[in-house]
Each structure stands twice: as structure tokens, then as C-alpha cells.
Simulated scan of single mutants.
Amino acid sequence: MEARTEAVEVVRRYWASVWSRDWDGVGRTLADDVEVFWPVTREIIRGRDNMVAVNSEYPNGWSIDVLNVYDAGETVVSEVQVPQEDVGIFRVVSIWTVIDGVITSGREYWTLYGGEEGHGWRRKYVDVGDLPS
């Protein structure tokens, strides 16, 4: 397995390629048999071609802001903001496994930023707002 800093760079290249719509570049960051799970919708994307297609066929009007990329030992965790015209801002936390220079698996939690209201019982304990990235 490569040095962890190399794994972080693979994830950074993945997001940079998605943002620039370099679909061949996206493919180069993924294993042939990559498997990515989206728990919020319970969708499983299997294979490089399907992962590239899911990204490339998404309607335009979005951008990518990489907020943080964390080296977490056996995994790399990324936090990304995806503003989408006429929809809002998505936030995604991705937990990636990188082996031999490619992403072999991932789990991505996509959510609409501020898309849910907190429970009323917590209001006396919390503030609602934004924190810097």
C-alpha cells in the first residue's frame, strides 16, 4: 500500500477531475471494480464505468469546493461542498479506501446543507448557523 499522503492526493485528484469534468481523469482515480455506497439513498455504484457515468450524466449547474481531506490511516475522508443551481448547496462526507494508487471503495453521505430542521426539544441547547470550513 502506498504512503498515506499519496492516497490523499488520489482523493484530491478525484475531486479536481470531477470539478473540471475530466471524466477520463476521474476514471484514472478509480479501480475497475470500485464500489461506492450512498447510505442516504441506499444506492450502490459498482464499477469504474458506472461511477464515471453517475458523475458525468448529472445535470450541469454545479461546482465543487473541497473543504477538507483527512488522512485517517487505512482510509481517506473528504468533506466537499457542491453548490447546485436552482437546488441549493449539498455537503458530502466521503470515506474512501485507496489501494495501489486508486480508489477501491467509498461511502458517501450526501445531504442538502440546512435541508432539515433540528428537533424542537434541542432548541434550548443549540444555536443554528454556519461555522467556517
Rank of each mutant, 00 (worst) to 15 (best):
V87T: 12
M51V: 05
V87P: 14
E79F: 02
D86N: 15
N55L: 11
V66N: 01
N50Y: 03
V80I: 11
Q84V: 11
E85T: 07
A53G: 07
V80A: 03
I64P: 01
N55W: 00
N60I: 11
V77F: 05
E85W: 01
R91S: 09
F90R: 05
E74K: 00
N50Q: 08
Q84Y: 13
R48V: 04
E57V: 14
P59N: 04
Q84G: 06
N50E: 08
N50T: 03
N60T: 14
L67R: 05
S56F: 15
E79D: 12
G61P: 13
Y58W: 11
V66L: 09
S56E: 07
E79W: 00
E85F: 00
A53H: 05
E57T: 14
S78H: 05
V54S: 11
V66T: 10
N68G: 02
S63V: 15
D65K: 15
E85G: 02
D49S: 02
M51G: 02
V92S: 13
P83Y: 09
D65R: 15
N60E: 15
V66Y: 03
V87A: 10
I89T: 06
N60S: 15
E57H: 13
G73T: 11
V77R: 02
W62A: 02
F90K: 00
E74Y: 00
R48T: 01
V76P: 14
D49F: 03
T75P: 02
V80Q: 04
D71E: 14
S56M: 14
V69Y: 01
R48Q: 01
N55T: 01
S78P: 01
N50D: 11
V52A: 07
L67T: 12
V87Q: 12
S63C: 13
Y58G: 09
V87C: 06
N50S: 11
M51Y: 03
N60L: 10
V54N: 07
V82L: 09
E74I: 00
S63W: 15
G88R: 10
E79S: 06
W62I: 05
N50F: 02
Y58A: 15
I64R: 07
D65Y: 13
V82E: 03
E57L: 14
